[in-house]
Design a binder for these strands. Structure first.
Length: 466
RNA sequence: GGCGCGGUAGCCAAGUGGUAAGGCAGAGGUCUGCAAAACCUUUAUUCGGGGGUUCGAUUCCCCCCCGCGCCUCCA
């Protein structure tokens, strides 16, 4: 079954398949590396990761590009204040961003590249626009002339024929013909980085990097373009204008936008000061897998209210998933195959796929999984679940985890090895046999202090890392 | 003002024209040397408010109230 995604362009759910039937060419607007990304930013990247993994589950290959914006007003200002070049200033934030992605188990796009390494492509694109009359020079900068692109507004569904743009026209500090016109190339200013081009020295406008980079790596029409809702206007609208004006082709077939993460009911933003970085949350003792789970658990087109209670609930939910996996792997079951268990596994797989194909309805998909876990636990308790059912159940979990990727506990430095844990458990079992419960409990406490939880079951002792 | 998203149990959150998934928390119970573990059961006569359509609406239509976002840099 083909997945259906909500396309901002059409404002409808549409069946998706890559144009060439094989490889999905997608582009994601990456971060501006002027400081650490916050978890609101990461919601978008987790969404994009869930999308990637879902597409792959359909058997398609991925060619995914993400830019790193390493030249913009804030970067220049901050670098200047720090008396650094923009490269020196942005390098640590780029590194931190990539580390955070890895921490959240967000797969690296096939191409992830800074804007400043694509100046040549931007210049070429701007020249195409210059030659076709879509731009004009003013005050040393090059502007895109919106009047030459009648479809402007089609993504944000804004009708500009009225007076909407009128309110702010009069200042005219940029010498623009039309208030909606935007800079594709900004003229040089003293102390700012600049590149020489046929149309004068300067630096890229905000939007041009995405068009240039996407077309360079993915061709003139992408399958999917993703980003946060706040980028719909003006960023993506302008990307469409400058790209389609240059090529005469649709820039992207599907536009997918993720809603914002809220904190206390408000948008998480740096100007409000109500944001958290991943690092801060981890320092508070929460685990990255709980953050990933929380960000992924609500459908991407719904605003999600971030709370620390929610993080705790996410961590507990993950425990339930892991406990189920552990039970499957460590319990002894009678020989044979229970048809009802097999039927439930198949039903869960179908429900899971249907939910993900329904515009990535992760909440519904999780519902299917937890319902399944409860049903199978009941079958196990009742003794009807058989050893032959284990394989299918574990495959179901793998199918789930190929998307959510939360079953594997985070690696912990200085943790006991499996061998050390098993040795201590052996000693405890000896103590229990000789009814030396004080010694047994001492060992359990010792392990607990190392984050190891023991469970005495009728099939013996099993353990897990907490 | 324009455009968009949302208001479902204590919290988070699915969903359908036919009588409310799931998670967390809470409450019972099972198992256990004990249990901090694990598992099971249970928790909304009701889906922001008011009209309307319908045999029947949380789900469709209209009006109202409330929250959030974008329209300026922003995931």
């Amino acid at each position: 079954m083909a997945p259906r995604f909500y396309n901002t362009l059409s404002q409808r759910l549409e069946e998706f398949a890559p144009a060439d039937g094989k490889t999905v060419r997608m582009y994601t607007c990456g971060p501006t590396v002027y400081s650490y990304a916050h978890i609101g930013n990461f919601r978008t990247f987790v969404f994009q990761d869930i999308l990637r993994r879902t597409l792959r589950a359909h058997g398609w290959a991925l060619n995914h590009v993400m830019n790193i914006t390493d030249v913009d007003d804030r970067i220049i200002q901050n670098a200047t204040e720090a008396r650094q070049t923009i490269q020196e200033y942005t390098a640590p934030f780029t590194k931190a961003f990539l580390e955070d992605l890895a921490t959240l188990r967000v797969e690296r796009p096939e191409t992830i590249s800074p804007a400043t390494e694509h100046i040549g492509e931007m210049v070429e694109l701007i020249e195409r626009l210059n030659e076709s009359g879509h731009t004009y020079k003013s005050d040393g900068s090059v502007y895109f002339r919106i009047a030459t692109f009648p479809e402007y507004g089609k993504l944000s569904h804004t009708n500009f024929s009225g007076n909407v743009a009128g309110a702010r026209i009069d200042t005219d500090k940029y010498e623009k013909e039309d208030a909606r016109d935007f800079a594709v190339w900004k003229g040089p200013k003293p102390g700012e980085p600049a590149w020489d081009t046929p149309f004068g020295a300067g630096r890229p406008g905000w939007h041009i990097e995405c068009s240039a980079m996407a077309m360079r790596h993915l061709g003139e029409t992408l399958d999917i373009h993703t980003g946060g809702v706040d980028l719909v206007f003006p960023h993506h609208e302008n990307e469409i204008a400058q790209s389609e004006a240059a090529t005469g082709k649709p820039f992207a077939r599907f536009w997918l936008h993720s809603e914002h993460l809220l904190v206390e009911g408000q948008k998480m933003s740096k100007s409000l000061g109500n944001f958290f970085t991943l690092r801060e949350i981890v320092e508070k003792g929460y685990t990255p897998d709980a953050v990933r789970y929380l960000l992924a658990s609500a459908p991407y087109r719904k605003q999600l209210n971030f709370t620390f209670d929610g993080l705790k609930a996410a961590a507990t939910s993950i425990e339930r998933l892991r406990n189920f996996e552990l039970r499957l792997k460590t319990s002894r079951f009678a020989e044979g195959l229970d048809p009802e268990a097999e039927a439930r596994t198949a039903a869960c797989a179908g429900a899971f796929d249907a939910a993900m194909d329904d515009d990535l309805n992760t909440a519904d998909a999780l519902g299917a999984i937890f319902e399944y876990i409860r049903d199978i636990n009941t079958l196990i308790d009742g003794g009807s679940f058989r050893s032959g059912n284990v394989k299918g159940a574990l495959e179901m979990l793998r199918k789930f985890d190929a998307i959510f990727d939360v079953l594997r506990p985070p690696a912990q430095e200085g943790a006991l090895t499996d061998e050390q844990v098993n040795a201590l458990i052996g000693q405890r079992n000896q103590a229990r046999k000789s009814r030396d419960f004080a010694r047994a409990d001492a060992i359990r406490h010792e392990l607990a202090a190392q984050g190891i939880v023991l469970e005495d079951t009728k099939d013996g002792v099993r353990w897990k890392r907490k």
